[in-house]
Design a protein around this nucleic acid. Structure first.
Lengths: 383, 383
DNA sequence: CTGAAACACTTGACCGGTACAGAACATCGG
DNA sequence: CCGATGTTCTGTACCGGTCAAGTGTTTCAG
């Protein structure tokens, strides 16, 4: 109850002399905004002591503290103002998250979502909040420039973002995920995509497949068959996977076609799947950028009357929930998103700690392992 | 380049007299931290003018501004300090998000994820960042108390949370989603669950079903058959749906059994499905708290050799991606999560604007519509 | 030629705290 | 009885900005 009394006073009155720190304690200070000084005057102690009552209880006697807290409650004081505290302490308890795609994608893409879920949970015990920073800058507010934070996590961003520039200029400790670090001080958390992709491709080779397709993402490239399989894929993750696949296909002398799609979305995936399965020399094995794409391939194959895996084998990536859900269950390359999130949270904490100590040690670089998971969407090459 | 020069200086030096605002412009100020004053001294203008150069370009001549910006760059100044700006301006460009369950759940639960995706996207043009607030308070940091924000969104929270208390005490503008508002000043965004649920139930009644089960959530209640169907369900959403279902079943004189589960999770759902389908008098129609639950029912039915919808009809809720993906496609109650997110974003913006103007108008209350979507998981009652 | 409005800066106050180095007094082993 | 050590509290200096109300100048309509 008491905590509410002051709220009903009109706001925005211009502080009636409360700021005059010199004057003696007043009896009627309760008008206007209540600050540490208001309480200090009322109780008859210094402002610093009131601050300690809230922030460092061991610095004053228990009874004085009780008195101060009681008075604070009586005056409707809710505790030190966060903004002021952030300024004075130089730390905000917030970690920014930068995501080039629309911020909604962090939630909609199941892989990103699972990763962020893990980050959020690993960070929670520390009390750090995750701030999703919009990259659009329509108004005068630009989150990457204006939001106080202790560090930032940069996830699969196109490098030339204004927002990222701001983070760098602010010299915030940065952790790059699924993306090469920009600048030498930043930590990275990368997935060991290449060996994983290679294992998936080798699996097809071992099953006797000699005509294969790779379906992968390439932002801003025209969708469809890529001119050169070896240099297919745009973006760190896509490139790594292509190289992994090729490192198994090329030595085996397999025929490879790469099909590009603009984004890892259902519509793009279906289109790419149609392209691949309509090739004159239809591939018998297809490696895909994600389980989502693999599933699209399965559906298009069924549409065309092809059986999976008897007529076409399909390998996904990520081992998302989808891989186990659909029929046939997908052979895929697993990445441990929970571990990835945890490593990222650790890297963030370390980066913050290092920055606080002014440490100039080399940044952390984590590699998250991958593993092939064989299920029902792959089988021996037909014929 | 220039912007980087200063960074290499050792940090944490104690400001060598830069703070002496009185002295004339110095030529060698570039040691230590650069603030507006540093630049002001160097250029020979007042600190306020430098501030304006960054924050209100229309307040000074273009050429002076150019000079100031150039000097700032030369000194390695990156722009006004966010923390200081937040304190001085009284606004932080951040909206808190409170979620009782582990913060990861915001990403993992597809319904919540889609909702937050929409909120984030609707808020992005404004430049507002979404800060996910951990509710755990292990260390000394407590986000709900310590993170500066302009408003907060409270989503499906158990009411008696410490974190929520802090938000209220801070008198932040609050928007409650899927949950009754706590306190009279808060806005709400609620889904019109009851009529939606009713439509789903009525659909079963119209198909001739006379023995039905409701599978719904009840935190902390023992899982299994609920003592009284009419009072089944715990939590705002669960209660609303139960009441909607009952409002169709009861007048029709249908036999109703309610089965509780602790959480809207796959394992709980499978258990509840087994309970329902193992009842002596097996229901022919089942209404479910979510599509996830409905899908669990479908799978358990198949396990038991029952056909859907010939032997059992199943109605889901939410119309998530799952409902269209699985076989048979689920009859379900659609809620428009994108609209819900947009409404929430609007409510947040309005709440912030109202708070700024000290408006005491009544808070916003939005009701998001629902609609029955009939697909393949429901059919006429057998026999 | 003159008063009002527009421009370009400056002044002073304020935003609401925290860090750190004392100072005053009490406790305690020797 | 004395210095060493603690416990409690205070003083000063900062953290780095923004706002609103001036103060001189120009500009321009009347």
């Amino acid at each position: 109850m008491t905590a509410h009394d002051v709220a009903d006073e009109p706001r925005a009155v211009t502080y009636p002399g409360v700021q005059g720190h010199d004057g003696p304690a007043r009896e009627e200070v309760s008008v206007g905004r209540v600050t540490l000084q208001t309480i200090a005057d009322r109780v008859g102690v210094s402002r610093m002591t009131v601050s300690n009552a809230f922030s460092r209880p061991d610095q004053l006697s228990a009874e004085l503290r009780a008195t101060i807290l009681a008075t604070a409650d009586e005056l409707g004081y809710v505790g030190p103002d966060p903004a002021a505290r952030v300024l004075a302490r130089g730390s905000s308890g917030t970690v920014g998250v930068l995501f080039t795609q629309s911020p909604g994608a962090a939630f909609r893409d199941p892989i990103a979502a699972e990763f962020f879920a893990s980050v959020a949970e690993s960070l929670a015990p520390t009390g750090l909040a995750l701030a999703l920073l919009p990259t659009t800058n329509e108004g005068d507010l630009l989150a990457a420039r204006d939001v106080p934070m202790d560090a930032a996590l940069v996830y699969a961003c196109t490098v030339d973002t204004t927002a990222l520039d701001w983070l760098r200029r602010r010299r915030l400790p940065l952790v790059f995920v699924d993306q090469e670090a920009v600048g030498p001080d930043a930590a990275t958390v990368l997935v060991d995509d290449r060996p994983g992709a290679r294992a998936g491709a080798q699996h097809l080779v071992d099953l006797g497949h000699r005509r294969v397709a790779m379906l992968t993402t390439a932002y801003r490239e025209p969708p469809g068959v890529a001119p050169d399989p070896a240099s297919a894929g745009i973006g760190h993750v896509s490139r790594e996977r292509v190289e992994g696949w090729m490192s198994a296909f090329v030595p085996a002398g397999v025929d490879v076609v790469a099909v590009h799609m603009n984004d890892n979305q259902e519509a793009d995936a279906l289109a790419a799947a149609r392209t691949a399965l309509a090739l004159a020399d239809r591939p018998t094995g297809i490696v895909c950028f994600s389980d989502l794409v693999a599933w699209a391939v399965v559906r298009v194959a069924h549409e065309l009357g092809l059986r999976v895996p008897q007529d076409v084998s399909v390998v996904g990536f990520d081992d998302s929930a989808l891989a186990r859900t659909v029929a046939p269950a997908l052979t895929t390359v697993r990445q441990d998103l929970v571990a990835k999130g945890r490593s990222t949270a650790d890297a963030i904490r370390n980066a913050i700690a290092a920055a606080r100590q002014g440490a100039t040690g080399s940044p952390e670089h984590v590699l998250v392992p991958t593993a092939l998971v064989v299920r029902d969407s792959t089988g021996p090459a037909p014929g």
